[in-house]
Design a protein around this nucleic acid. Structure first.
Lengths: 339, 339
DNA sequence: ATCATTTCTGCATTCGTATTCAATCGCAAT
DNA sequence: ATTGCGATTGAATACGAATGCAGAAATGAT
């Protein structure tokens, strides 16, 4: 039952040195007599002293805290990203302060709080952020990185899968394989991932003369994917290929087809996007476009470090190509399997 | 390009009042002339002033930050919990500082950092925490809540599904339905969830005279569940019922059975634990024991608030019963379906 | 032995905000 | 006009650690 708060002053008193010396003992790059440092450390252990990161942050003008804004962690693409980001941040000695927009809570509501906590940087994954808000961070000198979310503008860095190109790739594949009645199941309407995937897909279809596209709306959930696919398959002229805005939707679509006795891929090709873990499960074996998540995270971290350590670094935009993961949910041209 | 750091002093200067008045204007329960407060707020907006939560934390001796320790967010039970916790914390005006133990990084390594950041409380989900470490928090007066992790001892509060009783329930169900060659696929050996589920299951089997139990080890992943189930089914005398330490393992087991042309549930019953979202997917329709997650989270939050606001509140241990969710992956006595 | 250098340590201040205590003002009652 | 009271406000200090500057001690050079 030692006193609940032990400060560097207490340690100093016990050792018989000044508070400065205690402070210096705890930072590696300062000059303290080895023997003194050791006595300080011993006393610290004895008293149960832990440096106060809050106080340090105040004087150092740097918290070592990075904010992470997420929405719908539950969507299976996110947890992996979040976990990795948290771990990588720990790795470079930063902490992750995580904010989430609830179902009906807009991000702009939580941003004031983020600002108050003096985060050194902010990573935004799959969320909508108004540019006025962005500029508040910019003005404060806090770098913002949009992860897998592409918004034009120079206020923030962007690390994103090239969703437009990915959509085009799918269009080409499906047409090359001879599909003729194409469909798209969209994800959240205000997400940039959905917007870009849809745009690439439909643009390319249009360019190649496939103009009759069926489109259904869904949120990024299994259930909505299932329902949307059902609606498509119950039509008089059901599609023979469905591109889904995300894997989670596609998995629902696969099950919908199975439950309606529509053979995948013989009668219906289904292609997803992201390559979440479940896509590879043997019950699904989902053909999909893999977003290079690990690479994106690596890039995010190195960009973060640069923006934190190089004073005049500027925001950067990086688009990374997705790659086809051919599995068994879609009939594709043989050439797709060649790598 | 206004100055990157605006403080309450700047606002005070602009309005022509003292810093104290600015500070008071931003806290609700203090007495400031309404007209003055308004002028302060206007000036604050004009300058882009945001209160500095770090400085406030230092003087208030309270950060409003709650630490959350997670391991393997990727295991599908966790993201939902994490998201909910983060949102609920926001709801009561606290932030979540998230720490993760990497694949080979023990928790004890990150705890010093947690301590440094002066979190008001700590929530630990599914991780191992030595009791020496726990006592450091206790000594500092920081409440610790173990979420879904039961460790004897009075140093921390515990909110946990009653895994032992859950395991017993499964044993009863499988025996009542007439299964005779029972198996268990274990999860991480050092997790309390696995330990307790296994204990309840095997104890009850033993009590009822079923002594020939097959056991396989796995981590909490689909792949390891798949592999473990394969090993079981390749035996000379394969089991006719498998209880898995977690749903994610069970899903792998279902797919393994399917791939080996073992009919589920006709030839093999599979029961999981947790009721993760995928368990209800039509490709699986997994019979499982549902951990009352929402209830657990609600309890966690109210307990947290109590421990933060009531000075002498003591740690609390709460065990909540799991409930059977009968689906189509197991043959069960008819009575199971009656609710 | 003297002075120059290096190494180490203490003093005092700073970071930005909350809060105690005392001062001031306006206004009503006497 | 004087006193008293409540409502506002300002001055000063505390929170805990980092750091520039200047002594002090120790070492080395001459």
């Amino acid at each position: 039952m030692s006193s609940s708060k032990v400060t560097s002053v207490d340690v100093a008193r016990l050792v018989g040195v000044s508070q400065s010396t205690v402070s210096r003992s705890f930072s590696n790059d300062t000059t303290v007599a080895p023997e003194t440092r050791q006595r300080v450390m011993e006393a610290a252990r004895e008293l149960g002293y832990t440096p106060n990161a809050i106080a340090r942050s105040l004087v150092m003008q740097q918290t070592n805290i990075v904010g992470i804004l997420v929405s719908h962690i539950s969507s299976p693409f996110q947890p992996y990203v979040l976990e990795k980001l948290v771990q990588e941040l720990q790795h470079i000695g930063r902490q992750a302060l995580v904010f989430s927009s609830g179902p009906n809570q807009e991000f702009d509501d939580v941003l004031p709080t983020v600002l108050q906590y003096q985060v050194d940087a902010l990573i935004v994954t799959a969320a909508t952020l108004s540019s006025e808000r962005l500029s508040e961070f910019e003005r404060k000198g806090t770098p913002v990185i949009l992860f897998n979310r592409y918004t034009p503008g120079e206020l923030a860095s962007v690390i994103c899968c090239d969703n437009i190109e990915g959509g085009r790739l799918v269009a080409n594949l499906l047409l090359d394989a001879g599909h003729s009645r194409l469909a798209y199941i969209a994800g959240n309407q205000n997400s940039s991932t959905n917007r870009d995937r849809q745009k690439g897909y439909t643009d390319r279809l249009w360019e190649r003369g496939a103009v009759n596209l069926l489109v259904e709306q869904a949120q990024y959930t299994y259930e909505e994917g299932y329902a949307a696919a059902r609606r498509l398959l119950e039509r008089a002229e059901p599609p023979d290929a469905i591109f889904c805005a995300g894997d989670i939707i596609a998995l629902g679509a696969v099950d919908a087809a199975r439950d309606m006795a529509v053979k995948v891929p013989e009668e219906l090709s289904i292609i997803g996007f992201d390559d979440i873990p479940m896509a590879s499960w043997s019950a699904y074996s989902l053909t999909t476009i893999r977003a290079p998540v690990d690479q994106m995270i690596d890039l995010t971290m190195s960009l973060l470090v640069e923006r934190l350590e190089v004073p005049d670094s500027k925001p950067v935009v990086k688009l990374l190509p997705g790659t086809l993961i051919p599995r068994r949910s879609a009939r594709l041209p043989l050439s797709s399997f060649e790598f």
